[in-house]
Structure formats: structure tokens, C-alpha cells
């Protein structure tokens, strides 16, 4: 290369620069297309929520309404539906589930990752098998059990099937396995019990994994319609999706502007939570090898 005349060098470097530019354009083009595809329903919801009814049903596709109707839609949604109540129910539901899931899954994952006891591998296989069982399978017996105990229409009934998350056990086990044994041994020599090691030494280092799992768990249960629909008939206890359903039936009929406005309000907390935990979420996913 050094022996060739400078002209050839510039031509070929210009050529390679062009190729690099082209490949960048191609890669970003594909990524942008994918992002648009994912975002389209969300954007459509936002746009619809500020359109007047007439424009919603017009045949043309417009990203901005001719007449800004957002104030009316949002006011209608806020006044007619107990959105704050639904959101509060969602918070109680998600927080309750998440707290119990962490309390159960973290010690369990620690035992599977770091303690040596007979049957450990068998237990782990059982956990993996648990991952394969969809929630619909135990729905019937759970419903009957809750009905017989008179616990239908309670927060507890909404939460109880999800207290034990095999996914959390699996995720935390993967994370804890990479935790140095020496530190655990040092803690044992310093006089800590296994429970204290779990909560005071191992858990503080697992924040990325906890944040990642929290996002999975909260998104799943905030948006869950299936189980609340089965055990909840009281609108006062309804979490966001069920509340939306009650709202759509009773109040709005086909007022899609108000409906999407309500949906926007109810999705906002999730989006905010993810934006706040984004860095940790991504760390947690990459560190545990779950993709």
C-alpha cells in the first residue's frame, strides 16, 4: 500500500468511506423501521387522544389533528372514569406482587446458586419446568380455592398466583452465580448468618438484576387483564386494564378520543418508571445473560 501512488490511496479510501457510510445508512434504516413499527400503536394512541371524534373516524391518516381536542378528551376521561383509583389499584397490585416475589425469590435463588445441598440440581430443574407452565393452567383450581375461602374481590386474590415467580428465581440465580464465593466466605468468617449474607451482602450488589426484574414484573402485572377479570367484579378494585374495560363499557361507548386519553394516562407511569430505571434495566439484562 505504501508503495502505491497517493492518488490510488485517496481513491480507495474515499471508496471505503462511501461503503462505510452506506452500511451505516442501511443498519440505521433497518433499526429506524423496526423502532417505528414498535412505536406506531403508541404514537397512534397519543394522536387519537387529542383528536375530536369527527377526525378519528375520517378516512385520511393525519399525525396532527386539524382541531386540537386534547383538553376536552382528557378532561372527559378524568371526570368520567376514576383513573386515579385504577392507577392506585395498579400500584398496590404491582408493589404487593413485586415485594413478595423478591422476598421469596432472592433467598431461594441464593440457595440454588451458592449453597451446596443434596437435591439442589433437581430443585433447579423443577424451577426450570415451572417456567414452562402458563398461568392459565392453575387458574381454575386457584379460582375455586379463593372462592371457597371467600377471598374473591380482594387485592390478595389478584396478587396470590404471582407471589412465587420462577422467572425471578431463575434470573437471580444466574446473577448470584457470578457473585464471588470469597466475599460470602469472608462474611461467614465475620459472623454473618446465611440470611444476613443474602440481604446485607448479596442483595445490594444485585440492584441491576432487581431493577430488570422489577420492570418485567411491573409491566406484566400493570397490564394484566386476564386474572383480574376472573377474580374482580368490583370496579373499585380494578387495576388499569380492567378499569379501562369497565370505563369503555359504561361511560364512553365509542368515544375513542376519551378512551385513548385514559389509556395514555394509565400508561404514563410505566413509561416514566422505565425511563428512570433504563440504565439499570439494560445492565441487569446484559449481566444475567437473559435476552
Amino acid at each position: 500500500m505504501s508503495a502505491s501512488p497517493p492518488l490510488v490511496a485517496t481513491v480507495s479510501s474515499a471508496h471505503s468511506a462511501a461503503r462505510r457510510f452506506l452500511s451505516l445508512v442501511l443498519i440505521h434504516g433497518v433499526l429506524i423501521a423496526g423502532a417505528l413499527f414498535m412505536l406506531a400503536p403508541f404514537i397512534w394512541m397519543l394522536v387519537t387522544s387529542i383528536k375530536p371524534p369527527a377526525e378519528i373516524f375520517s378516512a385520511e391518516i393525519a399525525l396532527w389533528p386539524k382541531q386540537f381536542y386534547g383538553v376536552e378528551n382528557y378532561r372527559f376521561a378524568m371526570e368520567k372514569a376514576p383513573l386515579l383509583r385504577f392507577a392506585l389499584n395498579g400500584v398496590i397490585l404491582c408493589a404487593g406482587i413485586l415485594v413478595v416475589q423478591l422476598l421469596v425469590a432472592i433467598p431461594c435463588a441464593y440457595a440454588l446458586a451458592k449453597l451446596d445441598f443434596p437435591g439442589r440440581n433437581l430443585l433447579f430443574v423443577l424451577v426450570l419446568l415451572g417456567l414452562c407452565i402458563p398461568v392459565q393452567v392453575p387458574a381454575m383450581p386457584l379460582y375455586i380455592g379463593l372462592a371457597q375461602l371467600g377471598l374473591l374481590n380482594t387485592y390478595f386474590a389478584m396478587m396470590v398466583p404471582f407471589f412465587l415467580s420462577v422467572f425471578a428465581i431463575f434470573l437471580f440465580r444466574q446473577f448470584f452465580r457470578s457473585f464471588p464465593d470469597d466475599i460470602i466466605n469472608a462474611a461467614r468468617l465475620d459472623g454473618m448468618s446465611e440470611f444476613e449474607i443474602v440481604w446485607r451482602i448479596v442483595t445490594p450488589s444485585a440492584w441491576p438484576a432487581i431493577a430488570a426484574f422489577a420492570v418485567f414484573s411491573i409491566v406484566a402485572h400493570w397490564n394484566d387483564l386476564y386474572w383480574p377479570l376472573i377474580v374482580i367484579s368490583d370496579a373499585k378494585l380494578a387495576p388499569p386494564p380492567l378499569g379501562m374495560m369497565f370505563f369503555a363499557d359504561a361511560e364512553t361507548g365509542s368515544n375513542y378520543g376519551a378512551l385513548t386519553a385514559a389509556a395514555t394516562i394509565l400508561t404514563a407511569p410505566l413509561v416514566l418508571a422505565f425511563l428512570i430505571a433504563r440504565r439499570r434495566f439494560i445492565d441487569g439484562i446484559t449481566m444475567t445473560g437473559v435476552k
Partner: peptide
């Protein structure tokens, strides 16, 4: 310990 094993 070789790795010092400090609580991070």
C-alpha cells in the same frame, strides 16, 4: 483472601 473479598 487472594481477591481481598471486600464488601463492594
Amino acid at each position: 483472601f487472594q481477591s481481598y473479598a471486600l464488601y463492594p
